[in-house]
């Protein structure tokens, strides 16, 4: 059984030579196959426990995974006000180079991070486009200009608004009328007023990801 979780680190370098070191949770001791990107800002807090549950469920199915911090998120030494999408995308590529996971998993705005990454495949849960994200962030911005306590630069906002999604297997809930490769029952954890978890949903998604990875490998 290799279902353990431990804390690791990775080093990243951006296009301008600036870089740093970020923490990364590693699930299972085997070679990682997937890297998971959670959404930004408030939705991060609402999906973190679920992301860990999902990666544990995958590890039990023999699929090792990584949950990296990105520059400017979670425990990152980079202040949120200095973060840019280019930094996060550069960090993403650094994770791939140092750990060679082959498949990208993205939830909501986390799906925007893997667009430039060289991966064998992408799997997105309720991905949000740059345009949709820009509207939501405008609505969530407080009078003091912060988004749920995060100071966000106008450069980062502009990058996010213009960002596009890479081609992926897309999973959405039945309640979402947009197109998807798989529709399933469930409710959007990232909009819940209180952070929650959904272990049953994590099992369903882990089964879908396991099948998808096997199909791609086939």
């Amino acid at each position: 059984m290799t279902g353990g979780m431990h804390i690791d680190h990775y080093d990243w370098t951006g296009a301008d030579g600036v870089g740093g070191r970020e923490a990364m949770l590693r699930f299972s001791t085997g070679t990682p196959r997937v890297v998971l990107a959670l959404p930004l800002f408030e939705e991060f807090n609402r999906t973190r426990a679920f992301g860990v549950t999902l990666l544990r469920a995958l590890a039990r199915r023999g699929i090792g995974g990584l949950l990296p911090d990105w520059p400017g998120t979670n425990e990152s030494p980079v202040p949120s006000s200095d973060a840019t999408l280019a930094m996060i995308q550069a960090a993403y590529q650094s994770v791939l180079v140092s750990c060679t996971p082959l498949f990208a998993l993205g939830i909501r705005s986390g799906a925007l991070f893997d667009a430039r990454a060289s991966v064998r495949g992408r799997w997105h849960l309720s991905p949000v486009s740059g345009t949709e994200l820009a509207r939501e962030l405008a609505r969530q911005t407080s009078d003091d200009g912060t988004i749920s306590g995060n100071l966000v630069s106008s450069a980062f906002r502009a990058e996010l608004g213009a960002a596009s999604l890479g081609s992926a297997r897309v999973v959405r809930f039945d309640s979402d009328p947009r197109d998807a490769d798989l529709k399933l029952a469930g409710s959007p954890l990232w909009r819940r007023a209180e952070p929650g978890n959904d272990p049953a949903l994590a099992e369903v998604l882990a089964a879908d990801i396991t099948h998808w990875v096997a199909t791609c490998d086939g």
Binding site: S175, R178, A193
Partner: peptide, 24 residues
């Protein structure tokens, strides 16, 4: 439960589910 942050979430989720746009 319906504070200002939750209001923003409700409106955005309604936009998604009903395929509508709600102006501020």
């Amino acid at each position: 439960e319906l504070d200002s942050m939750a209001v923003a979430s409700v409106l955005t989720e309604l936009e998604d589910r009903l395929a509508i746009v709600i102006e501020d």
